[in-house]
Each structure stands twice: as structure tokens, then as C-alpha cells.
């Protein structure tokens, strides 16, 4: 279902099938999702691709183009938060709940938030449930703006929780004394992560990954492991398996084709890795739907 819903407080909710090419400037802080297929965003020199397992944050005023490169229809969903709504949220909730966001431990959160947030995050946890509920209700014609805003408020709670987990808890793991070094390294590691998210189905060499992240290969490997408790390769395999799972569930592509689509070379190693991770073979997983 296609709609663009502007609430009285200027929050905007969009749902629909994207055109092939779309050039825009975000007027407000936005969260972008896809519920099928994938959508590629160009922001400056960065190419960011979002799938059903990830979402993208766009800051106010960001220039971007989005393109759809997907064999299956791409169902986009986006929420733009009015400045005042966002500020009210931050004042009322985030600053109140300083234990959750570790404001005492990380007084620099406000200082660095804007620099960090415009990247790809995993679409998981409570944000996944709340966005799905919101989408479901609006799709069925929900008019009650109080309720819609309640969902939006909770989407922000959930987003900041993910932001905290993905940025500040991981920065804390880095073995550097200086906070600013931790932040700078994590910023570069996030570049590596978004590169893996966006190019997961290609052959990615450690050299090109390190170059994109502006780190040496050794430094990248060491700090990536410290922050995320896995190597870049393990992280890449995890993305590939997750996306293969999505394709198995939502498409009729043969398993061998999916193996190639998500970037694996060998079907037998794919099947082994899939079974190790999800405790079920790809075919059995597909047959369970």
C-alpha cells in the first residue's frame, strides 16, 4: 500500500514502492527501512544499501539519491521526525534515563551523536516489532494521531537503544585510553561495517575494506575484533547468511542461485554454515513456511 502521511505535528510516514531513481534532501531526521528487496542510497561518496535486516538514519539536510537494485519489488518504509518532536523526545526521555544511555559514562554522547548516527544499523529487537505494528495499523487506515505518535515515540526509544548498543557500548570495548581515540576508531570501524552491509555479495578484500575505513589492515582486524567480538569476515558471513535466510523465506530462487546471490562461492560450505548458525538446513528452513 502506498501512502505519505503527514501528521499535525509534521512527523511524516511514508510507505510504498520506490521509483528506480530518487534524488532528495531530507528535511528532517529520518529512519529508512525496506520490507522487501533492497534500496541503495548514495550520500556523497558513500554507497549504502539497506535490506530487510537493516535500516538507515538520514540526518536533517542530507543530500542523497536512492536507487532500487532488486529483482523483487522493493517496499520502502520511512519515518521523518519533526525537529520539535525529536527535541521534546530527547529532553523528556533520553536525558531523564541517563542509566540506559550511560550519559554519565559517556558525556560525549551529545557531542558525537550527530557525527555518528548517519549509517546503517541492524533492524532488530523492539524497533522491529514497533515499526511492524505501526506499519500494520497505518496500512489499515489508523487515523488516531495520538496513537501514531506513541508508536513514533517508542521508535525513537528503540533507535537510541540500538545507537547506544552499536556505538557507545562498542567504543567502550576498544583498548585505548583516550575517549576521542576510541570514538575516532569506532567511527572508522562503522565505515567498515557499512561497507560490508552494502557490498556483502561481492568479493571484498581486506585491503579495500581497510582503505574504505581509513585504517591499516592490521589495525582494522585488531580493533574490529575488540569492538564487535568477531572478525570482519565472520561479520560478513553473518550478513550473507541472514540475507540468504530472507531469500529462502520470501522468494522461490533455487538454493544454488541464492548461494551466488549472497556472495558464497560454494553451496556445500553455505549449507554447513547455515546449519551451524540456524540449526536447520536451508531446504528444511524453506519447507517450514
Amino acid at each position: 500500500m502506498e501512502y505519505l502521511r503527514t501528521l499535525r505535528n509534521n512527523n511524516v510516514i511514508y510507505s510504498g514502492t520506490r521509483n528506480n531513481f530518487n534524488q532528495q534532501t531530507t528535511s528532517d531526521f529520518s529512519i529508512r527501512f525496506v520490507f522487501s528487496g533492497n534500496e541503495r542510497y548514495s550520500i556523497g561518496k558513500r554507497q549504502l544499501s539497506i535490506h530487510t535486516d537493516s535500516f538507515l538514519i538520514l540526518n536533517k539536510g542530507t543530500h542523497y539519491t536512492s536507487t532500487v537494485e532488486s529483482a523483487i519489488p522493493v517496499q520502502s518504509f520511512g519515518i521523518s521526525f519533526d525537529d520539535k518532536f525529536l527535541q521534546d523526545f530527547k529532553n523528556s526521555w533520553r536525558l531523564k534515563d541517563d542509566t540506559l544511555l550511560n550519559l554519565n559514562t559517556y558525556p560525549f554522547i551529545n557531542r558525537y551523536e550527530h557525527e555518528f548516527d548517519e549509517t546503517i544499523y541492524p533492524f532488530k529487537g523492539d524497533l522491529f516489532f514497533n515499526v511492524n505494528h505501526l506499519k500494520h495499523h497505518i496500512g489499515r487506515g489508523l487515523q488516531d494521531e495520538l496513537l501514531i505518535n506513541e508508536y513514533l515515540h517508542h521508535c525513537l526509544i528503540n533507535y537510541f537503544q540500538i545507537f547506544n548498543e552499536e556505538i557507545f557500548q562498542k567504543a567502550q570495548r576498544l583498548n585505548f585510553l583516550s575517549k576521542s581515540t576510541k570514538i575516532e576508531i569506532l567511527r572508522r570501524l562503522n565505515l567498515a561495517k557499512e561497507y560490508l552491509y552494502s557490498n556483502y555479495n561481492t568479493n571484498i578484500s581486506l585491503d579495500e575494506l581497510a582503505e574504505y575505513a581509513c585504517l591499516s589492515v592490521t589495525h582494522l582486524l585488531r580493533t574490529f575484533r575488540q569492538a564487535f567480538h568477531q572478525t570482519p569476515h565472520q561479520f560478513l558471513v553473518q550478513i550473507r547468511l541472514q540475507r540468504a535466510k530472507d531469500l529462502l523465506k520470501n522468494t522461490d530462487y533455487p538454493v544454488n542461485e541464492i548461494v551466488n546471490m549472497v556472495g558464497f562461492d560454494c553451496p556445500s560450505s553455505f549449507i554447513r554454515l547455515f546449519k551451524d548458525r540456524f540449526q536447520v538446513t536451508p531446504m528444511k528452513y524453506r519447507l517450514s513456511f
Partner: peptide, 8 residues
């Protein structure tokens, strides 16, 4: 199946 909706 939807706490926010019922809470509201």
C-alpha cells in the same frame, strides 16, 4: 499482540 495499541 500489541501492547502499545491496547495500552493506548
Amino acid at each position: 499482540d500489541d501492547c502499545l495499541n491496547d495500552y493506548h
